[in-house]
Computed example of a mutant assay.
Amino acid sequence: MVDTSTSDAEKIRTSAAWVSVIVSLLVFLFKVGAYRITGSTAVLSDALESIVNVIASAVALFVIRFAAIPADHNHPYGHGKAESFSSAFEGGLIFFAAIMIIGESAKALFYQEPPRQLETGLWIVGAAALVNLFLGLYLKRVGKSHKSEALKASGAHVMSDVLTTVGVMVGLVLVLVTGKTWIDPLIAILVGAHLAYSGYKISRESLGVLMDEQDENVLEDLATSIRKNRKPGVIEIHNLRIIRSGRFHHVDAHLVVPEYWDVAEVHSFTHNYESEVVRDYEFDGELAFHLDPCKKSYCQICDMPNCPIRQLPFQELRLPTVKSLTGGPRPTNQGPYDKPDSSQKN
């Protein structure tokens, strides 16, 4: 049976990607027109970044559709990591464009005709910046609410483009006021440096996802759901790991349960608990628990009522933290865990 909510989310992500392609192309044409009118190196640098926007948004559209393909025999964890690849690719394009901009602008410091009709150019790039502002806010909102790495990366890039355009406009105003034409290529060099840093950040974050680097915010959200749904029988969880594949996360961990439970009872209990945790988790996903028997070493932190093998009285409930979840097993004779911050929701 098709999950209607998932299908609707896919349509929203795809629509947002189409909007990004069309608007990015229009903004690029605006900026090319502004460059032809003004001959400004700074405006040219802004237009070059918009070329990257157009290419990256087209790639994101393809990747979002590809990432929506369900898991299959060759891709058991699905195709979601393609979104992170798209983000890394976009970051690389931005960095490459930045190097080109810096090189061309450095030459323009010595060999460039003075810019012209700057007032007209200001109006055009100002309109482009306003359109990009709305596009960037829209992409970031959809990317965050529908868990799309590609859309979030595109939104971040478009917002960076807005800042770039504002910097270009400031440069054009300074040229108008002072008459010093060397300000124009200097602003373009600064734009290139800003883009290089932006491209590095996007690529670094995307490569982290591709290599399953731990994300503290994601881990804390999962820990919150685990604490919220914790019940007697969930004695301890440790060795937790997350594989992120777009908006779908595969989580595996060790779960300590009462050793006197039979297989059928443990299976039913863990299945229900996994479903409850995923329900309250920020992302779509699945949990796979490796079951460990308590071996009577967790008595003081186990609140299981009427336990037939209890050797020590229950003393304290240790709610899981990110540190305890991702660490190794810690029965009572190995010292206490860090307690969750009282400001965190349980």
Rank of each mutant, 00 (worst) to 15 (best):
E236C: 11
E220L: 05
E220V: 00
W261C: 14
N306P: 07
D284M: 06
V218D: 07
D215W: 00
P232N: 04
L172Q: 10
L219N: 08
Y200C: 07
M169G: 13
I242T: 06
N239H: 11
R227W: 03
Q300M: 03
G208R: 09
A253Y: 13
E265R: 12
Y281P: 02
L287V: 14
H238M: 10
N306W: 04
S275E: 08
L255G: 08
H254R: 13
Q214Y: 04
C302Y: 07
P305D: 06
G246F: 00
A188P: 14
R244D: 00
G171V: 11
I243L: 08
H267T: 10
E205V: 05
G192Y: 07
I237S: 03
D252Q: 14
N306D: 14
A196Y: 06
R227N: 09
G171A: 01
C294D: 15
A188V: 13
G285D: 04
T178L: 08
H194M: 07
L207R: 12
G192D: 06
N272C: 04
L291A: 08
F289W: 11
L195T: 05
D184P: 09
R279A: 01
I183F: 03
E216P: 01
K231T: 01
H238I: 02
V257I: 14
D262C: 03
E220N: 07
M169P: 01
G233Q: 07
D292L: 09
V168K: 14
R247H: 06
V257R: 05
E259Y: 09
I226K: 03
V263I: 13
I301M: 15
I242K: 02
E276R: 14
V209H: 11
V177A: 15
S275T: 13
V263W: 13
A253G: 04
L176W: 10
E220Y: 02
D292I: 03
K295V: 02
C299E: 03
R227E: 05
C294W: 06
V177E: 10
L176S: 13
M304K: 06
D215S: 12
H271F: 01
F269A: 09
C307K: 10
V251H: 03
H271E: 13
V257Y: 04
L172M: 15
N217D: 13
H249R: 07
R244Y: 00
D212P: 15
H194R: 09
L210D: 04
V266C: 15
R204Q: 11
E205C: 02
G171S: 09
K201Y: 11
G233K: 09
S206Y: 09
